[in-house]
Amino acid sequence: MRKGPIIITAAVALFFVISWIIKSGGAPEGSSSYDAIAEGFWLTFAAFLTLAILSFLYKDNPFYKFAEHLYVGVSAAYWMSLGFWTTLVANLFPRISMTLSEWFQVEFISYQYHFWVPPILGVLLLMRLSPKGGWLSRWALAFIVGTTAGLNLPRFLRSDFIEQISSTMLPILVNWQGFGDFFTNFSLSASGQFVSIVSNFLVVLGVLCGIIYFFFSKEHKGAFGAASRFGIWVLMVTFGASFGYTVMGRISLLVGRLTFLLDDWLGIISG
């Protein structure tokens, strides 16, 4: 075995232990020594995992792999146990079985026989694992797809279609009192008349040209082509905004992690 990895692993382990010892000493007053040691360990472990994940930016390495696998394993187990306690124990058992409710110490509500349908569909869904009964899972899937489509279609048609069309029907002249009033009260503030007029116009134009870009039955030539080109510009601006927001979001996460490392773990933040 090469020496390099052994030295690096040993160094990381040493740093871990030193950090654990130091952080165990800084526990709040009144807490027991056991609590302090545990607190020190978890803080150090969280910092180690953060650094292990960030180390991927340099290159793939065993520490990153360890953190990633730990994360995948823990989150799978967490969601599974959470699903059991919040769905089966909290919602199902109090409605189908008094014995199970008592066993899991939840208040029994009443026998509601239609609550047997979801567990039956759940079992059908699991039949996917059976080599012969796999087809049975399609019934449960059909139910899921059907109810989801049924529940969502009217809502989406209302909120994402009709209401959005209605939101595009904006007046071009906002609070129009004549040219005199427009020029005397001219302002470039975001809530001012001029900005409202321009933004209403841009919203309408952007929506129309955006739709024209996604119009596939006619070749994009002449005025139609010009509108479509404007549409793609509007889309690109939207993507730019989306990209910018994503960068902001990711940097926020980085700031959050670095604040944890520098403040909670190392305690070197001023102010």
Binding site: I165, T168, M169, P171, I172, V204, V207, L208, I211
Partner: peptide
Amino acid sequence: IICCIIGFIAAS
């Protein structure tokens, strides 16, 4: 598109 254009004019 037609509804939006008519709506835009109507709202104006």
